[in-house]
Amino acid sequence: MNTAPLLEATGLSKAYGPTAALSGADFALRAGEVVAVMGPSGSGKSTLLHCLAGIVRPDAGTLAYDGRDITALSDTARSALRRTDFGFVFQFGQLVPELSCVENVALPLRLNGEKRKAAEARALEWLARLEVDDTAAKRPGEISGGQGQRVAVARALVSSPRVIFADEPTGALDSLNGERVMRLLTDASRDTGAAVVLVTHEARVAAWSDREVVVRDGSVRSSEWAA
């Protein structure tokens, strides 16, 4: 595996007020690999993810995606990139409570301008693939946490992204449900060739990855290529 990294960050720094969340973090992600970002709470894991995904603009450092420097992109351009190339799974509170599950999953497609019917048809396929097609017509408030996370994974995958950013995707789940979500997430991403940046503090979740990096005090401490 000697291909150029899909996503490469060097010297990322980001401060929230007086506290530095990231100070000179380096990171590289190859197409299709699953990388766990580990570290104690407060170490800057989530900030790293937000910077890598272009949600937050770093104070310093460069970020290249697919060989293109995206540090200087406008907010609009970064939003568009996130819509088309990235997918997201968060710990909780990410599904729109008023929309049904299938509508939630169809949302990224519709934001990309797809027609409602087509978007919902594809959303339904993904719900089935994540074994939650029975929740399609239900609202997020009416399903279990594990089902909700699988719906969220379906939503992250529906737009065929090249990178999925998952921030503690199993944080609110019990072991069994967490495992099921991780299995489906990693299987699906491997099938579609999507790379995954998986922020977690749990080793058993990180064990689903190909390799891990550790963030400590705002910098990435160990980063070795998987064998």
Binding site: S79, T84, F88
Partner: peptide
Amino acid sequence: KRLLSSLVAFGTR
């Protein structure tokens, strides 16, 4: 707040 932020994350205008 959380929901809005996550909607922004996946690129909502």
